[in-house]
């Protein structure tokens, strides 16, 4: 009984300490200018990994067929985002596409 609480508290502490580690050390220690410049690519790189794997491998296996509505929706939404450069337009049209293609 106590074990399950201890387990999740431990999971929380570990997760928090990872997130907190370098923020706590900020100011006392710096990764340097080069590393900070490199980390400008972190947000794009992280989201890209989620986007690609969810599009190409929705069930874990690579699925490049037309029957994969996530892949189709993703490609069209990326095209819309690229041309419009507008987050709201992209989300609304992407959401509609998803609904449409998923119910086909």
């Amino acid at each position: 009984m106590n074990n399950i609480w201890l387990t999740i508290i431990g999971m929380g502490v570990i997760t928090f300490l990872i997130r907190f580690s370098l923020i706590l050390l900020a100011g006392r220690f710096s990764l340097g200018e080069r590393a900070n410049r490199a980390l400008r690519y972190a947000p794009v790189a992280i989201l890209s990994t989620f986007i690609f794997t969810e599009m190409v491998q929705p069930g874990g296996q690579i699925d490049l067929s037309l029957g994969n509505f996530r892949l189709l929706t993703g490609i069209l939404t990326i095209a819309i985002a690229w041309w419009t450069r507008n987050i709201w337009l992209t989300m609304i049209s992407g959401g509609l596409l998803l609904w449409l293609l998923a119910s086909l």
């Binding site: 947000p43 986007i51 929706t73 939404t77 992209t90």
Partner: peptide, 15 residues
């Protein structure tokens, strides 16, 4: 997949 659509809307415009 709605989350992925949102991610695309957020990240592609900054490329």
């Amino acid at each position: 997949f709605a989350l992925i659509v949102t991610f695309i809307g957020m990240i592609v415009p900054v490329l």
